[in-house]
Design a binder for these strands. Structure first.
Lengths: 190, 190
DNA sequence: TATACTTTTCAGTAATTCCTGAACGTCGAC
DNA sequence: GTCGACGTTCAGGAATTACTGAAAAGTATA
């Protein structure tokens, strides 16, 4: 399989971006290739297209599977494993965010919580704990908010985003119209 | 300078996390140390506390400056440069997001836009372009939304987040109060 | 069960990234 | 100017990570 220049540049870009992340070049390129491919590909096709060794592709696919970014499937009458990237970019985004949370955010929250349980016995620790507490609050708040928002379906999410900072105005309105709370409550009901 | 166990564990954790990102261990540790420090530190103090070479610290600080994550300042009567991490965690978050956008998102958007300008002359390219277009739309939408939300002050942001998916309900309310024709059209549209 | 095909593992090597010490540059005090 | 304190650069060695080929382990079919 020969890549077109268009696909080539996309794949190379993702390789680069991957290595800026923790993800390595190989994995980024494999994912990019699957993302733009019109049909599922097997490991040999990927290895040939990207000029990687078969074993490197195998490892890359395993990594992508651990991120739940690729789907494994079979073609009738073919024993080989085929891989594809899910269609829905919003779902992909969700998956990515969820995995990153699991791998990066959660351990950090655990570490912070543990640190905040310690009774500080000196000034540096007292200050450090204050700083950690503020970080903990920010992370806690933003991830739980994100988890919440992430549950919305694509259409609603799209609306929310298009609304942009106008959401702020709705908020402020709610805030300044205390007596009108009944009206809001009524209108927002299911 | 000797680190307390509390600070030590925080610093080590950030070193680890750093290397999961593109950032290396050194840089992560330096930042963590500055973050919890009650006063600005100079390069020698950092080098001693973390047991890195002076030159390593110098490079790390340069990197952190390029991310605008540390502030350079001077103490009266002291020629050395002192560094501190900004206090406000919300501001830090903002800075981080902005820099990442500049370094990762913007180049990707440029690549995608260029790719979408090409007139595809074969089926694979036609499909690839469709996929790239959907990715482009998602990134465009979410980053412009994020830029918008990021302008809010801390208090409002905090409110917005605490509101969580209740924001969804406000949105739906707004939607359901429109003439039925609009809503139906929207729901059935692409 | 044997066979042929496919995927995975892994030890070794290649490539990359990290880190250091030494040399160099800069700047203010004298 | 010289001196000394401080910051930066950089070549090269150390450490880590990526990648490969060969061998092993699965697996469906006959």
């Amino acid at each position: 399989m020969n890549l077109t220049p268009l696909v080539q540049s996309f794949v190379l870009h993702f390789g680069e971006m991957g290595s800026r992340w923790g993800i390595n070049r190989t994995v980024g390129q494999i994912y990019a290739l699957l993302f733009v491919s019109a049909r599922p590909l097997n490991a040999d096709e990927i290895a040939e297209a990207l000029a990687f060794s078969r074993s490197n592709v195998s490892m890359g696919l395993k990594e992508l599977e651990s991120w739940r970014l690729v789907r494994l499937l079979h073609q009738p009458g073919d024993r080989r494993e085929y891989f594809s990237a899910p269609e829905d970019v919003w779902a992909i985004f969700r998956t990515l965010a969820e995995e990153r949370r699991k791998r990066e955010v959660d351990p950090t929250l655990t570490m912070l919580r543990d640190a905040l349980l310690v009774q500080p016995d000196n000034e540096p620790d007292r200050h450090a704990q204050k700083r950690m507490a503020s970080m903990h609050e920010l992370i806690e708040l933003s991830t739980s908010w994100f988890a919440d928002v992430q549950k919305l379906d694509e259409r609603t999410l799209r609306q929310l985003m298009k609304l942009g900072s106008a959401a702020q105005k709705l908020l402020l309105m709610k805030d300044s119209l205390k007596p009108a709370a009944t009206r809001n409550k009524k209108a927002a009901g299911p």
